[in-house]
Design a protein around this nucleic acid. Structure first.
Lengths: 188, 188
DNA sequence: AACGAAATTTGACTTAGGTCAAATAATGAG
DNA sequence: CTCATTATTTGACCTAAGTCAAATTTCGTT
């Protein structure tokens, strides 16, 4: 999967200046403080957020419980996928877990740019494919791995997550209770 | 979500003849008998299959157990998404559950056509977005609904599934054991 | 109509992980 | 450095769903 990210970044790197400028022209930088929300439930996700630094997450509420659906680090693109794609209200929040700097691009501006610069359309397709594969894989792991195995998977493949994020959020990302996560960690 | 399918079908309907012809020229019809595999595990998914009639499913093996990941009816597009997108070996099988007729388009031919006809690129993006949203929603349901609620969801929104598909497969699609499904049905 | 295979149901028991409550750490503001 | 708050751990108990095994029911084929 990281391969696909590399492929995307490589594609961006190789964009001609005209396309690159077009992209630049519709993007702007903004900062958020730790705890601030970049997107709220029920809002339409009209922007995409490219993390330049810091950590963020996407989550939704199941009753009173938060379920974290994605964690974002430097160079990750944060959007509520369905809300952004369909321009309909989001069930998810996007929250800064640390102070973050993001590059913001408006949905409509990007739509217009895609119509003019085919390479941006291709880029959008690459993002959509990447995300689809990523979610598919996440679902696959929920079906085939136990809680312990999922934790170990993160520990091995994404140790930065364990280091930088509170256990409550990691537990909600793994789809288990905080207590269960604590017990898993005690065993290992 | 059906809205998105409508949007896609509408987009196809409104394609100019040139684009439509290009698509036609790289597609061909084929029949499979009930039980035949359109795609096997470890094969690269080099074709997309548009169901013209019949029923099919996509599944993978978790040990000895089959887990059904998607059910296809008329007008659905069947591919192993990650295998197709990355042109890498598939972990999934695609199987005809009844005799089926499909319209087959080769990956490479479609790639070439997308380069020439931007509208096909847009169409591909629409499919990718649709699939991403669909999987995201499936994951959401696994996290927020009980087995019974998931069964009721299908019963309400996709009764044709319950009618036309053996319970073993429905259970594996719901991510529960056959016995549990049987007990859920007994209660209702 | 009658048999054998496959599909479905029922029963008894197990288990991964959840919940609730209480006890310890750990951390950050003054 | 200290207190208060927040994060994490531990304990006791519960529950949804799984597993294994044994009935039944259904259905395609003679």
């Amino acid at each position: 999967m990281t391969l696909y990210i590399d492929k995307i970044n490589n594609y961006i790197k190789c964009l001609d200046n005209e396309t690159l400028n077009a992209l630049q022209n519709i993007s702007s930088t903004k900062q958020y403080k730790k705890g601030e929300l970049l997107l709220r439930q029920d809002e339409v996700c009209t922007k995409s957020y490219l993390l330049q630094n810091g950590i963020a997450r996407k989550y939704y509420l199941n009753g009173a419980k938060e379920i974290t659906t994605e964690l974002y680090f430097e160079n990750d693109l944060a959007v509520s996928f369905d809300s952004y794609s369909l321009q309909q209200p989001s069930r998810e929040f996007i929250e800064a877990l640390t102070d973050v700097t993001v590059s913001i691009t408006h949905y409509q501006a990007f739509q217009d740019a895609k119509a003019k610069y085919t390479k941006l359309l291709t880029l959008d397709l690459m993002f959509a494919e990447y995300y689809g594969i990523w979610v598919e894989n996440r679902l696959f792991q929920f079906h085939t791995l136990t809680a312990t195995e999922r934790y170990l998977e993160i520990l091995n493949k994404s140790p930065h997550i364990i280091q930088s994020i509170p256990l409550t959020i990691i537990a909600s990302y793994l789809g288990i209770s905080l207590e269960t996560l604590s017990r898993i960690r005690a065993k290992i």
